[in-house]
């Protein structure tokens, strides 16, 4: 079992990391389409959302089909989602606005769709930091409470995507739809959580 878990983790690492390395290699060498900046921003953005939805799919899937090994990579997939999202923002700063800090800050604060995306990223950052086992133990019950914020992050990121496009809303609509399906699996939990507060 342990051996299997390690193999599975290696697979997840490769599946998440290799496409990223490949995309950056192509973008650095100007082979990623005519505008590598736009391409790498879109690649990391949509990659982060894909991975986040994938991580939210793990629990319902492992429950339904009793595949416990899936749970072993849930944190890993979540951390990769954060990594992609962090690179998404870094790409925007380094390659899109090219260290024009005032433009960078004003775009984040004045453009609601970017503000919302930023809020989503800050949630992911908090979750990534507190995903360390030591902190998890220390936080005890509060850990789960904090990590429920991932559902809000998913919704924010869905809105960020929907709002960012010019007119082609079908793809972001599908993403939002999937997000809400995944939230529906947590209906009881979310309901309880909201009523408590």
């Amino acid at each position: 079992m342990k051996y299997k878990v390690i193999l599975f983790k290696i697979f997840v690492h490769l599946a998440a990391f290799l496409p990223l390395a490949n995309a950056y290699y192509l973008a650095f060498t100007d082979q990623l389409g005519a505008d590598p900046v736009e391409a790498i921003i879109h690649f990391t953005g949509i990659g982060a959302f894909n991975l986040l939805l994938l991580s939210l799919m793990i629990t319902p899937l492992s429950k339904r089909f009793k595949i416990s090994i899936l749970l072993k990579v849930r944190r890993l997939v979540g951390l990769y989602s954060f990594t992609y999202a962090f690179l998404h923002l870094t790409n925007f700063l380094v390659f899109e606005v090219q260290f024009d800090w005032s433009l960078f800050l004003s775009e984040i604060l004045e453009r609601p769709y970017i503000t919302i995306g930023m809020a989503g990223l800050l949630i992911l950052l908090t979750l990534a930091i507190t995903s360390i086992s030591l902190l998890r133990k220390k936080m005890a019950k509060n850990w789960q409470k904090l990590h429920n914020w991932v559902y809000l992050a998913a919704v924010l990121i869905g809105i960020h995507f929907y709002w960012s496009v010019k007119s082609e809303i079908i793809e972001p609509s599908i993403y939002l739809f999937i997000t809400f399906i995944l939230l529906a699996f947590r209906f009881k939990k979310l309901n309880k959580w909201i009523k408590k507060d």
Partner: peptide, 19 residues
Amino acid sequence: RRQLIKQMGFFGAGTLLSS
């Protein structure tokens, strides 16, 4: 390569979205 990168993107995570 452009095609490749698209597919890699999906391989990375997006196989969940056939659309």
